[in-house]
Design a protein around this nucleic acid. Structure first.
Length: 303
DNA sequence: CAGTGTCAAGGTGGA
DNA sequence: TCCACCTTGACACTG
């Protein structure tokens, strides 16, 4: 059991997602931005190791306009050493890594041009993880996509399109249930057709489900992760009090988190906390879960 | 220098 | 039919 937070570290001054406007694009600007972003990513990784936060989501903004046609720069070659250095530290300290392309990545879009653009975006994410020389336990998580008023057809289109993705993308890709469209049960159906692992989002599940209990969800989603996928990942968040349904809480409620851990026992998984104050809540969560972390570590040693 | 409108990209759902 | 919301900051223009 590893616990982590996504993309941004609020305790450090630097940002690994610096960007600029596309009209100001130049190769020099791109190189300078990526250089600074990688430097900051290194600082965040070192912070995480110091603080024993062993799960981290790398921002998709690491390389601005990475899959956009305006970007003709061979940044992969240019920053080969820097990526590898960060990857070495990640591997040496056994950090778990994920990435989450945003809502524009749509494998099942009706428009084939959007599928083509989505492939480019997925290849970019695979580039980042490959350049760090991370194995297939480093994952790229996406939602199933649009419904287009025909869910069955749209799910079939996902399955078809999934088969057309490159091997290096497929070995990292996982799908996640969302709060409006594709429930856990839908994701599990797609898994039967494709073997794509299902990442259980506990918070989205609260808003979009078929009445399944949390333990059942953990059991079913865990089963979709093969040995080369690593320990199953889950997303965890809490409702922000007084805000609209679905808003992420400002800080973690550790009592509630402990109850969640109790329910999910004995399923081991790595937890991504989608809580606004990022590493601060992750640190609290690690303390709250210390018993569980020790328990699952012992189970791993025995196996 | 502070304030603020806007940013590559798609889809959904409420007004 | 239009716009806010995803996640949210940070860029860059205006005065």
């Amino acid at each position: 059991m590893k616990i982590g937070y996504p993309c941004i570290n609020r305790s450090l001054k630097c940002k690994s997602a610096r960007t600029f406007r596309i009209r100001n694009y130049s190769e020099a600007r791109l190189i300078e931005t990526v250089r600074r972003n990688l430097q900051c990513l290194l600082e965040i990784i070192e912070y995480n190791i110091r603080e024993e936060l062993y799960f981290f989501r790398i921002t998709s903004d690491l390389v601005p306009f990475a899959s956009h046609p305006v970007n003709r720069c061979r940044w992969q070659k240019f920053f080969k050493k820097e990526f590898l250095k960060i990857g070495d530290i990640i591997r040496k300290n056994d950090l778990r890594i994920s990435m989450h392309p945003d809502q524009f990545t749509l494998i099942n879009s009706i428009d084939p041009r959007i599928f083509t653009r989505s492939i480019a975006e997925l290849e970019y994410h695979a580039d980042v993880l490959d350049l760090m020389d991370l194995n297939s336990t480093a994952k790229i998580q996406i939602h199933v996509g649009g419904v287009y008023k025909e869910k069955d057809k749209s799910m079939k289109r996902f399955v078809l399109r999934y088969g057309k993705l490159s091997t290096r993308v497929r070995k990292r890709l996982v799908i996640e249930n969302d709060e409006h469209n594709y429930k856990l049960a839908d994701c599990l159906k797609i898994n039967k057709e494709t073997d794509v692992p299902v990442l259980f989002d506990a918070y989205h599940h609260e808003m979009n489900n078929e009445g399944e209990g949390t333990a059942e969800c953990l059991e079913e989603s865990s089963r979709t992760w093969r040995s080369f996928d690593g320990i199953p990942m889950i997303d965890y968040s809490q409702q922000k009090k007084g805000a609209v349904k679905g808003a992420h809480a400002e800080r973690i409620n550790t009592g509630k988190f402990k109850r969640f851990l109790k329910i999910t026992h004995p399923y081991d998984f790595d937890i991504m906390l989608e809580i606004k104050d990022k590493e601060k809540s992750a640190l609290k969560a690690v303390r709250a879960a210390s018993h569980d972390i020790r328990f699952y570590r012992q189970v791993q040693i025995e196996n």
